[in-house]
Design a protein around this nucleic acid. Structure first.
Length: 455
RNA sequence: GUGGAUGUAGUUCAGUUGGUAGAGCACCGGAUUGUGGUUCCGGUUGUCGCGGGUUCGAGUCCCGUCAUCCACCCCA
């Protein structure tokens, strides 16, 4: 028979059991954190009608979306979780209670070239708060504080949530009379860290920005320092543009509230260069990077939008949200060696090895263990003893229970701890108690504790 | 979409100016049929990505093709 060579498509992540367990732990941690802030879970279809997903039309989305037809239907895989949310909210606006706080964790698809830290299928973990007509500025500070909490709960320390305000940028470019080209200029300005000030200036001038304006722009994006220092420096532009002034006030407030929410000063930074990929945002914008791996790019970004569902409804639904690129984050953590196999718990706590043909006693014991919340499995395969022990050893199962003729006759089970090699004969009930005592408690961090950096 | 690299065992890779394939790890068996990790002994891994060309002879050189990786674009 001609065999087909098994393969996994480029840009699609497929994990082995140990890593998958770590990934699942991340998902659980995020769900817990999100729920803690009053967000309700949401799931939407992976496939939507193309007209829904491309409502906004044009650009990168159209080039990268996975699109196909089934009969007459023109269908596409979702590109992000925000557009499906917009559709959902527009469709169910009458039945939802606002402000609507939802979280959603799911896979999204982008048909672009895969590379380091960039996938074609990846998980996003989104939270959004949608208001009906209005939405208070407080939410713009709360969202990044949730990210701070979520990352901290994951055991991460070396990250920075960078904050900016779109109104400051548009206001500023308006002052220079460059608002028509603001998007393009912002993308160039965003490369400051990567290519340096001189290159940015060259690019701006090559794009036809007047020399004087280019200088102004470099002076503006070159504003650095502590959050207070940046805010103070921005004050000198006040009074020239209404939008700018509004954005500056908002940024002041967001920074103030972020501190009140308990976000450590060194984990968020006002950064006037961030703007890319955020074209539908209208106010506060966020972008989170891993301090040790800035080249991988953003692992979490989002911001404030004034009208989420404008393509689907007349109802004005402002919102603020953020999306964690979970797959990328997991990839970065793996590269940094933060995912320690030692911390992965085995799929079971006890492996039961029946030594007799009749498995009844083993089955009863397994049931008893499970009723006591002890994860167990029976290994009944006709294999050599060595192979059975090796199985437990490879999976990291901490206890093996032997049930042979002697044990059945004596009404006991023989429990062996693989870590110490000790073994004792106990009555099944006592065995449950002893095993429970020896098991580690839940809630281990994803990261090795000793690798934590003092914050 | 643009540019640059790389495809050899399950995996990571070696393979000399061209002479019909090798190592570590993994896997399987044994030392050890009711006791794993360590050790020792033995064993199997293959369309050398695919197609064509040059040559007496190609894993090696040439052309094409596909795939993967890296960078750009863009993005989580």
């Amino acid at each position: 028979m001609e065999r087909i060579k098994p393969r996994t498509l480029s840009g699609f992540m497929e994990l082995l059991p140990k890593q998958q367990v770590q990934f699942e732990r991340m998902l659980e941690s995020l769900r817990r954190t999100y729920a803690l802030y009053g967000f309700t879970p949401l799931d939407t279809p992976l496939i939507e009608a193309t007209e829904i997903l491309l409502a906004k039309g044009g650009g990168e989305t159209e080039k990268q979306i996975y699109r196909f037809s089934k009969g007459e239907a023109d269908l596409s895989l979702r590109f992000d979780l925000t557009v499906p949310l917009a559709k959902y909210v527009a469709l169910h606006a009458g039945e939802l209670t606002f402000p609507f706080r939802r979280f959603q964790i799911g896979k999204v698809y982008r048909g672009e070239r895969a590379q380091r830290g960039r996938f074609r299928e990846f998980y996003q973990a989104d939270i959004d708060i949608i208001g009906d007509g209005k939405l208070d500025l407080l939410n713009e500070a709360e969202i990044p504080s949730i990210i701070y909490r979520a990352f901290s709960e994951l055991g991460l320390e070396k990250f920075c949530i960078r904050v900016n305000n779109r109104k400051i940028l548009t206001g500023f470019y308006d002052m220079l009379g460059l608002n028509a080209r603001a998007g393009e200029i912002m993308r160039t300005a965003d490369k400051l860290d990567k290519i340096g000030a001189e290159k940015v200036e060259e690019l701006l001038i090559a794009d036809g920005v007047p020399l004087a304006s280019a200088h102004e722009i470099l002076g503006f994006i070159g504003i650095t320092g502590s959050n207070e220092e940046i805010l103070t420096a921005l004050e000198k532009y006040r009074g020239k543009n209404e939008t700018f002034d509004c954005g500056l006030d908002e940024l002041h407030t967001v920074v103030k509230y972020l501190t009140a929410f308990g976000v450590a000063e060194d984990h968020f930074a006002v950064d006037l260069t961030i703007a890319r990929g955020l074209d539908y945002y209208t106010g506060t914008v966020y972008e989170t990077t891993m301090t040790d791996h800035p080249e991988i790019g953003s692992v979490c970004s989002g911001g404030r939008y004034d009208n989420l569902a404008e393509y689907y409804t007349d109802r004005k639904l402002p919102g603020v949200g953020i999306s964690i690129g979970l797959t990328r984050l997991f990839y970065v953590l793996g590269e940094q060696g933060y995912l320690n196999d030692q911390l992965v718990t085995a799929p079971a706590d006890v492996l039961i090895l029946p030594m007799t043909d009749d498995l009844s006693t083993a089955i009863s014991f397994a049931t008893q263990l499970r009723q006591n919340g002890i994860r167990s499995q029976i290994y009944a395969e006709q294999k050599k003893f060595k192979a059975k022990m090796t199985y437990a050893d490879k999976l990291g199962i901490p206890y093996v229970a032997f049930i042979g003729e002697d044990e059945i006759t004596g009404g006991v089970v023989k429990i062996k701890s693989l870590a110490t090699g000790e073994q004792v004969s106990l009555r099944p009930t006592d065995a449950c108690t002893e095993i429970k005592k020896g098991l580690p408690t839940d809630g281990k961090p994803i990261r090795e504790p000793e690798k934590r950096i003092e914050g």
